[in-house]
């Protein structure tokens, strides 16, 4: 069943891209409760960075920086005034996202552009094309980096402290404002990296982010609030589900099936895969 097996790298690499995007969202949505609709446009910014530089490896750090700085600016200029109104941030950042898309249209033109893949990524081993392998490797590296940051560095542990109890963290001397900035920088930077990865599997356009952002949010929902393990599992599951649902039914039903599976999953685990326990009465 070669056709069946061919779906595997496709599903896994979609899962890997979703994971990179969702990693960023776990930071900003999972940890800070901010729904940043402009996250998709940070992906787009990363992809255009790769287009401008024309060099995949150089694009990775630059895209991280570009998208990270965009996130940082957004957080400082707007989002930080909205921490108590998470649903309003959604609408606010959607406004930002519209502006950024139009900006891309004015800067780079409305038609899609193609970023040529480097020659060393042509070919593959068995059913695994190198470009898809590269994306998976990138996602693994991203997860490891985030894990090391959160658990092995002082800043990362502070971030976790702020997530678990903002007030307590603030009273114990952590500058929560700076932690928020950093969190946003890293989360948005990861979106930029995801954007670079996306240039390997398709063309780049101003609306690139909008194709992935909804699924990435679903990953965060299914993965549970701010949980690394949950996000990894959910991203892989959703990536595979997407590609196999397309394979078995027709493509147009795939998203409906994915949606139904997520809803069914929430029946079993209303808080996603893994949850932080907290004791708040809302």
């Amino acid at each position: 069943m070669p056709a069946f097996l061919n779906q595997l790298p496709i599903g896994l690499s979609i899962g890997a891209v979703l994971l990179l995007i969702a990693l960023g969202l776990t930071f900003t949505f999972g940890q800070m409760g901010v729904i940043n609709m402009a996250h998709g446009e940070f992906i787009m910014a990363g992809a255009y960075t790769a287009f401008l530089l024309g060099d995949l490896l150089a694009a990775l750090p630059v895209a991280f920086l570009v998208a990270g700085v965009m996130g940082l600016v957004l957080e400082r200029a707007a989002i930080r005034h909205f921490y108590r109104r998470p649903l309003d941030t959604l609408l606010l950042t959607w406004g930002v996202s519209l502006v950024l898309q139009q900006l891309a249209r004015d800067l780079f033109g409305a038609p899609n552009v193609q970023v040529p893949a480097p020659s060393w990524l042509a070919g593959g081993v068995g059913i695994l094309p190198y470009n898809r392998l590269f994306i998976m490797g990138l996602a693994v590296a991203g997860v490891v980096a985030v894990w090391v940051y959160l658990t092995r560095t002082k800043l990362g542990r502070r971030t976790q402290a702020v997530v678990q109890n903002r007030q307590l963290a603030a009273t114990s001397g952590i500058d929560t404002g700076r932690v928020d900035m950093l969190t946003f920088f890293i989360g948005s930077g990861l979106a930029g990296v995801a954007g670079v990865a996306l240039t390997l599997i398709g063309p780049v356009g101003p609306a690139l982010g909008t194709y992935y952002i909804v699924d990435a949010f679903l990953v965060v929902v299914a993965g549970g609030l701010g949980q690394l393990r949950g996000a990894v599992l959910a991203a892989i599951a959703l990536g595979l589900l997407n590609s196999y649902a397309e394979f078995w039914s027709d493509a147009s039903l795939a998203k409906v099936i994915v949606f139904a599976v997520v809803i069914a999953f929430l029946q079993v685990r209303p808080q996603g895969l893994f949850v932080l326990r907290s004791r708040v009465l809302t």
Binding site: P86, F217, L218, V220, V221, A251, S252, A254, K255, F259
Partner: peptide, 17 residues
């Protein structure tokens, strides 16, 4: 936010369908 995202996913799925 979770509800908002689910309804948005439904809208996206509906269009593709």
């Amino acid at each position: 936010a979770y509800f908002a995202i689910l309804t948005q996913a439904l809208a996206a799925a509906m269009v593709i369908l």
